[in-house]
Amino acid sequence: MRKPWREQLSRWWAMPVTRALLAFLLMLAIGCLFNADGAFFRWSVHRDTMRQVSVYGILACGMTVVIITAGIDLSVSSLLALAAVLFAWFTLPHGWPAILAIPLVFLAGTVLGSVSGALVAQLGIQPFIVTLAMMVFARGLAKVISGGQKVTNYVTDTDGSTRLIEHPPIYEMIDSRILGGNISIVTIVFLLCVLVTSTVLAHLRLGRHIYAVGGNKEGARLSGVPVKRTLIAAYALSGFFSAVAGICQAAQETHGDPETGMAYELDAIAMVVIGGTTLAGGKGSVVLTLIGVLTIGYLQKILSLNAAPEATRLMLTGAIIICAVWFQRGRKSARSKPK
């Protein structure tokens, strides 16, 4: 006869969050093992890891929502670059106050995101293709606005003369730390994004619709879910988060680089998938994504601390993505033989 605690354990084991956490703890254990002369045991290293991973994490929040609708958003990295360029362009050469620039950048990201959503929902084009097109388009737009150069605090006036200007305080503000210098503002922004996503997915009607659309689009439609509006909202949310990430990127780099964030969408997808949200849609949560983000972030940090060469990093990252996803998939068979 099975004891109740064993049943309890096997139930926990079957939960994706347990497995995601275990993969993350494994990563921390690897960090303790390869601690680079004790550097891994210092808080500043963990603080920097979380700062570094925050921009990816913000993108992953939006990606989670889109993936739950059984879609994909390849445009996040380009929207990030566009947002970074717009933010720098508004605040540096134009000298607009941040209170005006930030909402405008948010608006741009949300609008372009909803355009992707509308193309997916109204025209029924595959999300991969729509967002691929948006990825190319937004990158082009970023280059047009910036003139192909970084938008920096070295500004050219209308008469052709150049001068250096001070960065507005918002740059310093976003790239600073609070709580006695122990946590970066961008990390707080990331956690806020997780909170927003989690609220939307778990507590709002929109969230229920998102799961319904991803699980069974036709069934959702028949049971009265506004499928099109839900899809548009999901992509709009992803566009919004891309804009948030873009502002964080620009503030950290102290300029708007139209080339920034290349291929970040792939990292964001990897983070979502490692957490345990499946690309098939209808399942998953942003808490899983948070754990996935940290797992990849720590992997990168441990490799960096130990000065691993680039080739090793690529191979290890690929291998670990496969292992983590396989680990997630194993839960069905694990139920029959709990440890």
């Binding site: 680079a36 290293v45 920097d48 950290q252």
Partner: peptide, 12 residues
């Protein structure tokens, strides 16, 4: 951004 990450490791 990658240079910043590597430098953080160097500083640590």
């Amino acid at each position: 951004p990658d240079a910043r990450r590597e430098m953080e490791s160097a500083l640590a």
